[in-house]
Design a binder for these strands. Structure first.
Lengths: 205, 205
DNA sequence: CTCAGATGCGAGCTTTTACTCATATTATCG
DNA sequence: CGATAATATGAGTAAAAGCTCGCATCTGAG
């Protein structure tokens, strides 16, 4: 638990194809373990075993087990941010409600298929030394959303963005945990919460 | 990580005062560690050290480290459930909005002062073998809220209860994590989300 | 084909951690 | 008090986990 930043970043980057494959296998093994057993079940020996590689190879590219988790978190955040930006870019001139719903769709898709993984990764942030870049992705996402909200007359847009992100995450996460499978239904309830919140904010803010 | 139920429950109950004090010290030490270093930072040796007792004593009352976390989770849930029930019992005939706001206050108070602890405990449920009784507390809470919602004409009350609980938790949790200190402001935003959601649900349900 | 650099390996060393047990101290009650 | 039950202790053990290092194998440029 003493992990500082130096040990939470990749050690070296793969140059040949086989090493890229190896790194990918490690990430997937890590994800699977986090998904089924959580942070506490993740150890380098097991990751290596599940990935079908040796511990030594693992340590060629990951200086610590935290680095694996950090990498997964970064990927997950980057994907979400990219998805959101794509929606926003492709939705110029569209009605507010439509855009919000599309954003919601991106969020739901990213979280609902592997809810345990998503939850563990988010939880991990508070416990690990995560590099600034990965942390920044979270802020970037909020700012992206905030900009969009501001353009549509929502007051305190940054606060609202944070609130909406965390509230939607909480709702979807819990639904996944309970074993709900109807993503459309969950999304529609999340929509209610989001629009409800926004309406109140338009008046009160 | 193999912990089954037998090992996640208290070993024996304190009979004298000194042992009750000891157990209390262990819980508080556990809470402090979870708060600052998360689940991964919790180990029996450290808990004992922080509590100022010996490992041997710890194992007199806790069969495993999981039992400490399980106990903390149970307490936290019991407190929340009690608080909610008290509000509901004391609010017969009060307007819906007032009661909701009081419930929100209970939730916020229980979560906002030690957000890291609250988050870790909730996360822990998925990773540990928690006794049925503690698990049931979660359901009881949802059902309590659901009953209240149903009496006020909310459709799909149980789903709505789950959604509201998790959405409020997500929102408050994130606010605490970001270091917000104005509990009243957070609560008022949570109120917006809750009423917003409920209004949509009254129509759509 | 060759060879230097890149990659892969896994036995094994070290540290951490869960947990026990023999022993010592303290409370309670007659 | 004195005796018995309750409680507290912490050195010690076994298992798990983090991580290294010397050596084997592969790849691609020339």
């Amino acid at each position: 638990m003493k992990t500082d930043l130096a040990t939470a970043n990749p050690r070296k980057t793969p140059r040949q194809r086989r090493s890229a494959v190896l790194v990918e296998a490690i990430y997937e093994a890590g994800a699977r373990i986090l998904e089924t057993e959580g942070l506490a079940g993740l150890n380098t020996n097991r990751v290596a075993a599940v990935a079908g590689v040796s511990v030594g190879s693992l340590y060629q590219y990951f200086p610590s087990k935290e680095a694996i988790v950090a990498g997964l978190l970064r990927q997950s955040r980057q994907d979400l941010l990219d998805g959101m930006r794509q929606v926003l870019a492709a939705s110029e001139g569209e009605p507010f409600e439509v855009v919000v719903d599309r954003l919601l769709g991106v969020a739901a898709r990213g979280q609902f298929d592997r809810p345990n993984l998503a939850r563990t990764l988010e939880y991990a942030e508070g416990m690990l030394a995560i590099d600034e870049e990965t942390r920044a992705l979270k802020t970037e996402l909020a700012e992206e959303i905030a900009g969009f909200l501001e353009r549509h007359g929502i007051s305190r847009p940054l606060i609202a963005a944070w609130d909406l992100i965390s509230l939607v995450r909480g709702l979807i996460d819990a639904a996944g945990l309970r074993g709900e499978t109807d993503a459309a239904d969950v999304q529609s309830r999340a929509r209610s919460a989001v629009f409800g919140y926004l309406e109140k904010m338009r008046i009160a803010g």
